[in-house]
Simulated assay, not measured.
Amino acid sequence: MKTHALEIGLAGLVLLTLAAWLTGHNVNASWVIGCVLAATFIKGQWLIDEFMELRHAPAWLRCVVSGWLVLIVGMTALFNM
């Protein structure tokens, strides 16, 4: 991955984190929790694919790591909604 692409990716992750944090702290509604969890899932999958470099990994490994992400976000949704 090129350095320029890494910088853009990092900036995107920081922006998603700030947006989720600001949304979560300013509004208290269940749909906001869903939006924040969706943003968290998108960030997590992006990190798995790009920064952990699992985009071209064997399918079973990618499925295990993505399954872990779904489990964590799903459990968080169950206990917060």
Rank of each mutant, 00 (worst) to 15 (best):
F79R: 14
I8V: 09
W68K: 02
K43W: 05
G67M: 07
L10A: 10
V14Y: 06
L54C: 03
A11Q: 05
T17C: 04
L13G: 10
L15F: 13
L18H: 01
A5L: 09
M52G: 04
P58W: 10
A59Q: 13
W46Q: 11
F41K: 02
A38P: 03
L71N: 09
W68D: 03
I8F: 04
L18T: 06
L10G: 08
N80T: 15
G12W: 00
W60H: 15
V70N: 10
L13E: 12
L13S: 07
A11L: 09
W21F: 09
G44S: 08
N26G: 15
E7R: 01
W21G: 05
V27E: 14
R55F: 01
M52L: 15
K2R: 08
T23N: 03
P58V: 07
K2I: 00
G74V: 08
G9M: 12
G34Y: 02
V36H: 00
S30M: 08
I42T: 04
M52Y: 06
W31G: 06
G9S: 14
G9D: 13
F41L: 03
G34F: 02
M1S: 14
A77N: 09
G74F: 14
G44Y: 01
L47G: 00
I72T: 13
Q45R: 04
S30I: 12
C63G: 04
T40R: 04
L16E: 01
A11Y: 01
R55C: 01
V70C: 10
E50V: 04
T3W: 00
V70Q: 06
T76E: 10
N26Q: 15
W60M: 04
M75F: 07
K2N: 15
G67D: 07
H4V: 04
A38C: 11
A19G: 09
W60D: 12
A77H: 14
T23I: 05
S66Q: 04
L18C: 06
A20W: 03
L13D: 08
L13P: 06
V27H: 09
D49W: 02
T17Q: 04
L37G: 01
E50F: 03
L22H: 05
V27R: 13
I42S: 01
L69M: 08
G9L: 11
M75I: 12
M75E: 12
I33H: 11
G12S: 08
F51E: 15
W68Y: 11
V65T: 03
D49M: 03
G74T: 06
N80R: 11
D49K: 02
L54P: 01
A19W: 06
V65G: 00
